[in-house]
Design a protein around this nucleic acid. Structure first.
Length: 209
DNA sequence: GGAGCGATTATT
DNA sequence: ATAATCGCTCCC
């Protein structure tokens, strides 16, 4: 069982996103009545990361990624879905961890109302579904997940996640060099978790048949 | 000023 | 396999 541990602080998120990503696995993210146990995340690190929205510098959209650790970076995906990151690293550095999947551990009734008819394991399986389960929308861009009065709360697992249970691989859906699992094996997930989203390679630029 | 393109998901 | 759908980026 994964009970609730202590609240995470900004200091817990100030490290590099690879380290932070691993440490977020098994943590509970609380949004009002709903809580998810995080089972799958991805790291995006630096303006040299070709898979990152911060590639080649800051824009109005990605400004939050360059800010202090402990806030949400929320963006619209494919014009349809919201996806949420936890900003980490030092202020001025472009670093964030994308929340890809989780297991509902509280507020199941609320989530079920938000997603009628969806199988329990699929409720937060994938980044777009995860935000819907938590009720995260574009207005939450920049919202805090640490500190007093933060609208979201992160809690560490009561017992640390065993390192042997953590798997790594290429990031999902990232096309081009950023999707190269040799250079960027920056997806992290917990072994044997039904809520982990299926891997899909990034779509190639041209498709002919 | 506008075309092109996604860190995706639900449906065919 | 592919439509849905829109803000950001980059190129005229």
């Amino acid at each position: 069982m994964s009970g609730q541990g202590r609240r995470l602080t900004g200091g817990d998120l100030a490290g590099d996103p690879l380290t932070v990503a691993r440490s977020l696995l098994g943590c509970h993210l609380v949004a009002g009545p709903v809580a998810l146990r995080l089972t799958e995340v991805e790291a995006y690190w630096g303006v040299d990361d070709p898979g990152s929205h911060g590639y080649r510098g800051m824009t109005p959209r990605t400004e939050v990624m360059f800010g202090p650790a402990g806030r949400l970076y929320v963006y619209r995906s494919y014009g349809v879905h919201w996806c949420a990151n936890i900003v980490c690293g030092a202020k001025g550095e472009c670093a964030a961890v994308l929340l890809r999947a989780g297991e509902v551990v509280a507020g199941y009734g609320v989530v079920e109302q938000r997603r009628p008819g969806v199988r329990r394991r699929d409720l937060a399986r994938g980044p777009g579904r995860l935000t819907r389960a938590l009720g995260i929308v574009g207005e939450d861009d920049g919202a805090a997940v640490v500190g007093r009065g933060a609208p979201f709360v992160l809690r560490a697992p009561a017992e640390p996640v065993a390192a042997e249970r953590i798997r790594t691989g290429p990031r999902v859906g990232v096309s081009g060099p950023g999707g190269d699992g040799e250079r960027y094996p920056w997806r992290y997930w917990l072994a044997d978790e039904p809520s982990v989203s299926p891997y899909r390679p990034g779509r190639p630029r041209v498709r002919r048949g």
